[in-house]
Computed example of a mutant assay.
Amino acid sequence: MHALHSDNHAGAHLEAGDIRNEQGYQDDQTCDFTVIEIASTAQAPRRLSWLERITGKLHA
């Protein structure tokens, strides 16, 4: 897992590809990556119920 410091999705893919190349993967080796954007603040869509607070699972 790596933290990327790009401001946009395309830049993050380029940065992830550079990390892959730095780790020494060759073209015939398989290495996949996924870029996940994490918001600066985590907000629930509504107030959580007591059950959701206790279990840590968000029910729809």
Rank of each mutant, 00 (worst) to 15 (best):
D7E: 05
Y25C: 11
S40I: 00
Q23D: 10
D32F: 05
I19W: 01
A16Y: 10
L48N: 03
I36K: 03
H59P: 00
H59K: 07
Q23Y: 11
T34W: 00
Q29N: 13
N21L: 03
H59A: 01
W50I: 08
A42L: 08
A3W: 09
E52N: 09
A16N: 03
D28W: 12
E22Y: 13
R53V: 15
G11F: 05
E15P: 00
A12D: 12
I38K: 14
R47I: 08
E37M: 00
A60C: 14
R47C: 07
G17S: 10
T41H: 01
W50H: 07
T30V: 13
L48T: 03
I54Y: 13
H13M: 14
A3P: 02
A3K: 12
P45S: 11
H13Y: 15
L51E: 13
A16K: 09
P45I: 09
A60Y: 15
E37R: 02
A44E: 06
H9A: 09
R47A: 09
T34H: 02
M1I: 11
W50V: 12
D18N: 04
H5W: 06
A10N: 03
I36G: 01
G11W: 10
A44C: 11
E37N: 00
G17F: 06
D18C: 04
R53Y: 14
A39N: 15
L58H: 03
H2V: 07
L4C: 12
M1C: 11
I54A: 14
K57M: 02
N8Q: 09
D18S: 08
H9T: 08
D27T: 06
T34S: 05
G56P: 02
E15M: 05
M1H: 07
H59F: 13
T55H: 05
H5C: 04
H2W: 13
A44S: 13
Q29P: 11
A12Q: 10
H13C: 14
G56S: 05
M1L: 13
V35R: 02
A44Q: 08
E15I: 02
N8K: 12
G17A: 10
A42H: 07
M1W: 12
T30N: 12
K57E: 10
V35I: 11
H13N: 15
Q29H: 07
A42R: 03
I54R: 12
A39F: 15
Q29M: 14
A12C: 08
D28M: 03
H9D: 10
F33W: 08
I19C: 00
L58S: 00
H13T: 11
Y25Q: 07
D7M: 00
L4I: 11
L48M: 08
G56R: 03
P45Y: 09
G11Y: 07
S49P: 02
L14A: 15
D27N: 05
G56E: 04
D18L: 09
W50G: 03
H9F: 12
Q29A: 14
S49A: 02
H2N: 10
R20S: 10
H13F: 14
H5N: 06
G24L: 13
L14P: 04
T41D: 07
L4F: 12
H13E: 13
A39V: 14
Y25I: 08
Q43P: 00
L48D: 01
T34Y: 01
A10L: 08
Y25G: 08
D28Q: 06
D28P: 01
E52M: 12
D32C: 01
S49I: 03
Q43G: 01
P45A: 12
A3D: 11
R46F: 04
I36Q: 05
D27F: 04
Q29K: 10
